[in-house]
Design a protein around this nucleic acid. Structure first.
Lengths: 219, 219
DNA sequence: TTCCTGTATTTTGTATTCAGAATTCATAAT
DNA sequence: ATTATGAATTCTGAATACAAAATACAGGAA
């Protein structure tokens, strides 16, 4: 048995992200530290440490004297995040050895084609999507870049919930993944990164229409 | 008088970054929380909050039961960071309105040409360099991207100290800035971003030779 | 002498306490 | 009726207290 000793703040952070994924938190509403700490069975200290970490990642925002809250969704911010992730993922692909990309291509194609049934649960679809992107990046040697991507993507999750469950959009996503994989299989990395950027830009456009207060500051 | 009420953790974070810039901390050595807190005149609580924030930014690393330490320099990590900043800055330029870049070009050129005297203090030169890059990015509308850049750059500062004070290298830096500004003045944004990437790649190469344990993991 | 082991000390990680700010609610004045 | 004012309450931000882990050190055995 592998005994793991990890700081509470990390475990709490993960639990909070999980709950955010489940949509447990109302965006824009200040969250109560004592209530949350009690619920989690920890004291306020490690909870606050986790909250501060999440604030540093841009997932929460903090206001002096008023505590923390999950940042309200905003079309502008989602667009900003998409641009960033698009740029970073493209960079990660460019930094990956061409041979590795070539080796990865078949698996990526298979994964994209085996997109889960449209009936499948939202969560499952999102996990599948994440898996595809993780596989794509798996051979990138720049560890800091991968960390950064993970962090930025965590801040996007609450947006991707809004899109899930739309058949046409999912089909389009799978199709785009296939195209990217095909470019990689053909050894055409510039085309692949361009398609990858398009994938995120498309995602942004798909989303902005259904974000309350899209384009504007949101609130 | 503008009354400022900011959380201690933020002020402490800035102070720690300042001290890091001054080279007060021995990299790789665990830092003592009680001693540091006493020195700063605060309790351990907000200090630890600042440390956790810095750890989230990759500037510190934390080990269970052993506290925090400034991550030891490593050629590999510096290279990773350069690639990231190069990619992000190039992205920021691409996202800036061409008109804004055109308007910015003369100021950028002037600033690059007026590079401080080689006799000037290290710190002054670094500030000047930062100013140039800040001006370059000043019209980028993607706020999250700018935040991210600030954070990543903060983690690089302890590396840039190692290079300062080398005449030839500084001259080269100024020269590259001029070239980028000229591309922008000519409205050739792709050439400018390419030169910008080169600027960072060059910076990486300039540095790796003088980082202890360059290329390898550094330790 | 060197290496191991057990104890003392130091230092971190977490809980609790305290002080002050923000919010809420009630009351009074316009 | 509405708005302003002030007290009471709630909650955050920071300090202190406590427990457990890590380190340092001393003593003993090989």
């Amino acid at each position: 048995m592998a005994i793991q000793r990890r700081p509470l703040r990390e475990q709490i952070r993960e639990e909070l992200l999980l709950r955010l994924d489940r949509g447990d938190f109302a965006a824009g509403k200040d969250l109560n530290e004592v209530a949350l700490a009690t619920e989690l069975g920890v004291s306020r200290t490690p909870l606050r440490e986790a909250l501060i970490t999440l604030a540093g990642e841009g997932i929460l925002e903090s206001n002096q004297g008023r505590g923390f809250r999950f940042a309200p969704v905003s079309g502008k911010e989602f667009g900003d995040l998409c641009e960033i992730v698009a740029g970073l993922e493209a960079l990660a692909v460019e930094l990956t050895a061409p041979d590795d990309l070539l080796a990865l291509a078949p698996d990526l194609l298979r994964l994209a084609q085996g997109f889960p049934d449209r009936i499948a649960a939202q969560q499952e679809i999102e996990i599948h999507d994440d898996e595809w992107h993780d596989l794509l990046l798996s051979k990138c040697p720049n560890e800091r870049l991968l960390d950064l991507l993970t962090s930025v993507k965590a801040g996007m999750r609450r947006y991707t919930h809004l899109i899930a469950g739309e058949d046409a959009l999912l089909e389009r996503e799978a199709e785009e993944h296939c195209r990217i994989a095909e470019h990689l299989a053909a050894g055409d990395i510039p085309a692949a990164t361009a398609a990858l950027r398009d994938n995120w830009v498309d995602g942004m456009e798909r989303m902005t229409s259904r974000i309350p207060g899209a384009g504007a500051d949101g609130g």
